[in-house]
Design a protein around this nucleic acid. Structure first.
Lengths: 224, 224
DNA sequence: TATCTATTCAATAAATTTATTGAATACTTG
DNA sequence: CAAGTATTCAATAAATTTATTGAATAGATA
């Protein structure tokens, strides 16, 4: 026999668990990781994560129902994005926790970085190269994000267009690619693609977040 | 056919999801909520949450394996506690997220508070009453926590001993009970018990965390 | 050492979650 | 309005998670 208070408590914790439950799945973790870089349509998310469209859609429903993600339509596509800064910070906290306490996870992330064999570059190095004018800075976030603000003089080729627009880049010049921030698995994809095709490319893996935090020069939309 | 990078990624996200998954269950949410107030033995957790001992133990194993909780032995008992401050903050972020975005959860928490019909008191009010010496301040956290530091002049009766030691309190004096912090469901239990027995009791529901944050007077162990 | 007791383990059934398939929707664009 | 396409839904089987039961274990106490 349950007391009134117990029933109410059960329901409270059930509701609270919905949020955590929605994050507690490897596929959805990766989706959130991706969405932390900007809005993407279902198809792109499916391709990136290697899941079927239907499966991806179902996972996205879960995130949407838990109020972690929301949608905006654009032409024929539905773009998914994180519901707000709170989501990003909760997810960061969880991720941080995972990497801090879970030695296995930590090692795997390091292995991955190593396997990619990609040279990272610090914000300071990038700033120096940029000032010397010896580098093409490539913003691989969705166009819209780029419009809102980007590293000074960066050019925009969103990741999903990179393959088609790769000829806009020169193989002679050094390229530094960046995306939003954190551990940014996304920029690895861009760098991998470019390196394979013979471009001289490095990644600025700390991303736009770190850049703005340091107060380094950016170009912003006049009316934000 | 999966690429090497995909396999590695899958494993990374699987590891990262373990943490979130461990939190993504109503029962474990409540356990963490309780452990956020201090260390407790299995039996006490089972009683508080209304679960069987075996079931409680299994949930605790999950938390322990996910590195969210750790144990210390004491006599015949095994005390469970949160693994560190990181766990508390990740859990707070999740909880915050749940209450912020989930209207249903928000309403339920408010309902619960209301149903309890307990008068809350602010840190400022408590300070004023304490200065006037007209109140008994009751710390219901585990003894150890109390030893480490407590509100100035508070007395210690841990929740699990309250029923047996209730006679140490006077029905004539006003009592204000407190525990660690946040939404602190725990203090509600103490207040409920005392009110039922006819004591003049209120709760300081912001808890010790809020108190110290405001720099109000505390008594601390000389060698912390 | 033997006994006691708090906790864990193991087995199982019920419930939930996940991936897959193929069909159904809903929105755009012509 | 029709055709096209991105996304969602529905049904199902496989996998995982949960609660329950009763037995096993490990550490403390006598």
């Amino acid at each position: 026999m349950k007391t009134n208070a117990r029933i109410l408590k059960d329901r409270i914790y059930e509701e609270l668990a919905i949020t955590a439950k929605a994050m507690g799945n490897p596929r959805r973790m990766e989706i959130i990781d991706l969405l932390a870089q900007g809005p993407f349509p279902v198809e792109a998310i499916a391709k990136y994560t290697g899941m079927s469209i239907a499966n991806t859609s179902q996972h996205l429903q879960v995130l949407k129902n838990a109020r972690l993600a929301e949608i905006t339509r654009k032409g024929n596509f539905i773009y998914y994005q994180l519901a707000g800064q709170h989501v990003f910070s909760a997810w960061s906290a969880l991720r941080e926790l995972g990497v801090t306490y879970n030695a296995e996870a930590k090692k795997l992330v390091e292995d991955y970085q190593e396997q990619q064999q990609q040279q990272g570059i610090s914000a300071e190095e990038l700033l120096k190269k940029a000032k010397a004018g010896k580098v093409v800075i490539l913003d691989i976030r969705p166009e819209e994000e780029y419009q809102r603000g980007h590293i000074h003089r960066a050019i925009s080729i969103p990741l999903d267009e990179l393959e088609n627009r790769i000829r806009e880049l020169s193989k002679k010049q050094e390229i530094v690619a960046y995306c939003r921030g954190t551990l940014c698995m996304l920029v690895n994809h861009a760098v991998e693609l470019l390196a394979k095709k013979g471009y001289k490319v490095k990644k600025f893996d700390k991303g736009y977040q770190d850049w703005t935090m340091k107060g380094y020069p950016v170009d912003m939309a006049s009316r934000p």
